[in-house]
Design a protein around this nucleic acid. Structure first.
Length: 543
DNA sequence: CGTTGAAGAGGTAGCTCTTCAACGGTGCGCTACT
């Protein structure tokens, strides 16, 4: 009898032409073959796609791959087509004709195709779930799984419904893949996708070839001048990340004026222009792209020599993802943040939430008087509101235990017997909770920008992968500011300890330094606590 | 929450200063019209 590992290695060489599998890939494939739900947090170049490609082929029955961008779906299909002997892959999305989508389900049903790629919005449609249930999905994959946490709460609520979809499909073995995610993000992915007996595999957050640095600026003008000066001096190609579409255009224009081959990229540009910039950057036709966060997913260019941020991101998770596009070839690359505390304000604006209380009351009234489950789209039509707004609120009301959701639609939760006003209050509390957590993530970003210690130690600590010594390859190390943190003997609050705070409730220790610890509280998000105060005031008890 | 730009105020020519409203990111899918 051949082991799973042997079969996996055979498939890797025959179907894909790979001469070996990495240990993280093998561990994941073996866990999946044993039916265990698995989350892989691994760097982009690690070969995450290989995990589901091989695991999918090991099991009879098709593999569903949820992918956030249609462009990414086509990239993945192309990758499979170019492999020596990989099975057929199809996609279901709005960029294809209806007949092509129908054909995709047909080939899955008769076993002509193994893989089907689609966005979470497709899985929001009961008829699509019915088709998939009929073909007997054996492996369910969520690619770029950080989107569950990053986008699910407002921007793309269908991400938060994937767990229900998985249940409707009879809970096939589920795999989530991402390159970024601090422990709370991982916990949320596992919880939202309703993993059973989850296995979480993380591999190497550290990217030692990236030279980390931060420059603080007083004025917006000084910051802009410094960004342009730095980019002019760095080795191309590289990226400048900005906070607004307008800034993307302005930086691109200013850099072009300096003689650089520069272009702007943001979601407001025509699709044709976006494709052109993307392709030209990959083909070495551009020195620098000034972009909003729209630029990135699916950009796998090995020789990006710098990623300069002209503004902070809303979390270190996003920051890590964006800087991760530098130096994938392993050669030295520059990663620099131009920081103004004022820039945190825009991020706060984006996380502020104000649920429409009147609409909440109307949703509750409508659901209460309905005969049975009401679908999102029907509810939006009845209430004459945008489907997006309604489904966003439904997500909030679901988390607030007011609404239950199933494949057939929304109903009032049996655990909720209150009035519309009560529901509005609960929605507000739920939104406030989310806002507190998001704001605490912004504060962690501030912490990175303002730390006087080693940047890499701060960054890796955030991702739960502490570095014992200062890295020697960041600005604070170079300036001789960072000092080795001494391991504390008998630390009462080591990393991963569950604690309770009188005011903030329960949380988990995320990182421990000699004078302070960082705790992620379930209802407050990240908090940094001074050890001295913890001891004096007896703030924390371990549980 | 902070930036930006237009409009108004002051005081008498084109300027500075103040005030205030508007605006700010990420993609899917669908529909109507070419």
């Amino acid at each position: 009898m051949t082991s799973i590992g042997d079969r996996a290695r055979d498939l890797a060489s025959q179907a894909f032409g790979w001469d070996r599998l990495r240990n993280g890939q093998e561990d994941a494939i073996e866990a999946l073959a044993a039916g265990r739900d698995t989350l892989c947090v691994m760097p982009t170049a690690y070969g995450k796609s290989g995990i589901y490609q091989i695991a999918g082929m090991l099991e009879p029955g098709p593999t569903v791959v949820v992918s956030p961008l249609i462009a990414l779906q086509f990239d993945q299909m192309e990758g499979l087509e170019n492999a020596p002997d990989a099975p057929e892959a199809v996609a279901v999305n709005s960029a294809q004709s209806r007949s092509r989508n129908e054909d995709a389900f047909r080939t899955l049903a008769v076993g002509e195709s193994e893989f089907v790629f689609l966005a979470p919005e497709q899985l929001g449609k009961p008829e699509v779930v019915d088709e998939l249930r009929a073909v007997g999905v054996s492996l369910f994959v969520v690619d770029e799984a950080h989107c569950v946490s990053a986008w699910g709460h407002d921007f793309r609520p269908d991400y938060l419904r994937l767990g229900e979809v998985i249940e409707q499909l009879g809970h096939p073995t589920t795999l989530a893949l991402t390159a970024t995610g601090a422990p709370p993000v991982r916990d949320e992915i596992v919880e939202r996708l309703r993993f059973r007996d989850p296995l979480v595999l993380t591999r190497g957050f550290d990217r030692p070839n990236l030279r980390l640095g931060v420059t603080r600026h007083e004025s917006e003008d000084a910051k802009r001048a410094a960004v342009i000066e730095q980019v002019g001096a760095e080795t191309a190609p590289g990226l400048v990340y900005v906070a607004t579409r307008r800034a993307a255009e302005e930086y691109a224009a200013a850099l072009a004026k300096q003689g650089l081959r520069a272009a702007a990229y943001h979601a407001g540009l025509p699709a044709k222009e976006r494709t052109r910039v993307h392709e030209e950057f990959l083909d070495d036709g551009l020195d620098v792209v000034a972009a909003t966060s729209a630029f990135g997913m699916g950009i796998d260019k090995p020789d990006v020599r710098f990623v300069v941020h002209a503004a902070v991101t809303e979390s270190l998770d996003s920051y890590y993802q964006e800087i991760g596009r530098a130096g994938r070839d392993g050669e030295p690359a520059t990663v620099h943040l131009h920081y103004r505390p004022e820039d945190l304000g825009l991020r706060r604006f984006f996380v502020a939430r104000h649920p429409d209380a009147d609409l909440v009351r109307r949703i509750v009234d409508t659901l209460r008087s309905a005969d049975g489950p009401v679908r999102n789209a029907d509810l939006a039509r009845t209430l004459e509101e945008s489907p997006r707004k309604v489904s966003g609120l439904l997500g909030l009301l679901h988390d607030a235990v007011v609404v239950d959701r199933s494949g057939s639609g929304n109903t009032l939760s049996p655990r909720f017997a209150g009035s519309g006003d009560e529901a509005a209050l609960r929605a507000k509390e739920q939104a406030d909770l989310r806002e507190r957590i998001d704001e605490s993530r912004i504060e962690m970003m501030r912490g990175y920008a303002e730390t006087r210690g080693c940047r890499r130690q701060y960054l890796l600590g955030y991702f739960g992968e502490p570095l014992d010594e200062p890295c020697g390859n960041c600005d604070t190390c170079a300036a001789g500011l960072s000092e080795a943190t001494e391991a504390i003997d008998g630390d009462p609050y080591p990393v991963q300890t569950r604690v309770r705070h009188a005011e903030w409730g329960e949380g988990i220790v995320m990182s421990a330094e000699d004078d302070r610890i960082t705790v992620f509280f379930d209802s407050e998000g990240y908090k940094v606590l001074a050890r001295e105060l913890i001891a004096e005031e007896r703030l924390l008890e371990t549980i």
